[in-house]
Simulated assay, not measured.
Amino acid sequence: MVERRRFRRRKRSEETPEDPPILPLERREERLARRRADRDAEEARAAAQVRVRRQAEEAEREQAERERAAQEQAEREQAEMEAARRELASLRPTAPAASAEQLAPAQTVPPAAEAPARPPRRAVTRRPAPQATLLWDQLPVFEIDSDHLERNRIITANREDPAHAAFDVLRTRLTQALAENGWTRVGITSPSKGCGKTFTAANLAISLSRQEGLRAMLMDLDLRNPSLHKAMGVRAPGCMGALLRGAISPEAHLMRMGENHIHAGHDIAFGFNEVIEPYAAELLNAPATAEVLTSIEARLQPDVMLFDLPPALYYDDVLAFRPQIDGVLLVVGGGITTEREIREVERRLGTSTPLLGMVLNKAEGTELKKYQY
């Protein structure tokens, strides 16, 4: 029996001579290590699930905040748009006579009993000749700085200010009135300084540029105080007097807007000026000026020609230029212009120059240099 046991022990030791015996303590430590690893992994999974759940809740809260902010912004814009529409009561390109509560008792078109019959309605735009298109495309371009336009209150550029809708309405009414009467040339003036006529002219020009198929032009004829180029951010634009005297060609002086991020069209040309003319009225009344404007209209064939004129009650520049325009847009300043001044402007314009409409502007709205008449 003893020998048999010794034989069994010797046989087992020969079969696994290199395997050390596994002690019970080592097995317990191994099990504990596995349990700790499993516990750590479970805790990591639970923490990851908590993070995912919190991120989802945070994303839902942010989305709800964005939707609430968008709703509030839409309500504010709607309220501002309603306020802008109420202000459009002053934009009356086809109004008959203003009431006593309005700023001016002006008529935009002479009554049918006094005025001759209107010509047949034509399209707002016409198809230009190929030669005119070629000349138009050859006009030099200037770069657009949207930040500069925003600083100078050209609100129709970025269209972030809801008040830009007022200029779109003015554009549509103006082009319709011109088309109905077969007119092209419009002077933009104000009774006195500080009413915002250049601000109005620049914003209206940008709005016109977005009208498909329409070719427009804006010329700075405030020769005593040129400022349109400052509002548009153009340096060294040249001399308008040289153009009006025929010393330079229109194609060498007029400029179009280049590529831009404000979605403004390229069918708007600007005539800027940086040289003050001491004898502005004489130049505006000269036969050479009439010939140059006729040549521009024949060669480039614009549908609308806007002229930024001086204040009507300063000097006689507007009176001198009156034969060259079909109608006038009068910009009045809230809190600045009086009813007496508006009536005096109407008297000076006379019945031969229709008042196409009055634009109520509360302030100049730009950082341009003040008039120095």
Rank of each mutant, 00 (worst) to 15 (best):
A216D: 02
N285L: 13
E14Y: 15
L170P: 04
D19K: 14
V52A: 15
K230W: 08
P226E: 02
V359L: 02
P21L: 11
I206F: 10
S99A: 03
A123W: 08
E364S: 12
L284W: 03
P119S: 03
H229V: 03
S249C: 06
A231R: 06
R121A: 08
Q301P: 07
A252Y: 11
E274I: 06
C195T: 14
E274M: 09
E251D: 04
R9Q: 12
V275R: 13
E101M: 01
V50H: 11
A269C: 08
T200S: 09
D222V: 11
G187A: 04
P130A: 04
E30N: 14
R31S: 07
A98E: 02
G271L: 04
A252H: 14
G187W: 03
N152R: 12
R66S: 08
H229N: 08
R27K: 10
T337Y: 01
R159A: 02
R171I: 00
D19I: 10
R235E: 15
G233Q: 09
P323W: 08
S249A: 13
S227C: 06
L243P: 01
Q372C: 14
T198R: 03
P250T: 01
R4S: 10
R39L: 15
A98H: 02
A33W: 14
K370M: 13
D326Y: 07
G233I: 09
A83Y: 03
E30V: 11
A280V: 04
A123F: 01
T366G: 01
R9P: 07
R31V: 08
E277F: 05
E77D: 13
L329R: 02
E43Y: 11
L330M: 14
A166F: 09
M81N: 09
L313H: 06
L228T: 03
P250K: 03
A48P: 06
L355H: 03
P287N: 05
S99L: 00
A280R: 05
T294Y: 12
A74D: 12
E26G: 09
G365D: 02
L135A: 12
R347S: 15
S190G: 02
I144R: 12
L313T: 05
V345H: 10
R121Q: 13
P250Q: 01
R127I: 13
A252C: 10
P128C: 05
G194A: 08
E150N: 13
R35V: 07
S352M: 10
C195D: 09
T108P: 02
E57W: 14
A104N: 01
V234Y: 13
R348S: 04
D161N: 11
P226T: 03
E251L: 06
E62G: 03
R45G: 10
A312E: 01
E14N: 09
R76H: 11
G187P: 03
E212F: 11
E259N: 12
R348T: 03
A117V: 12
R66D: 08
P287G: 01
A79D: 06
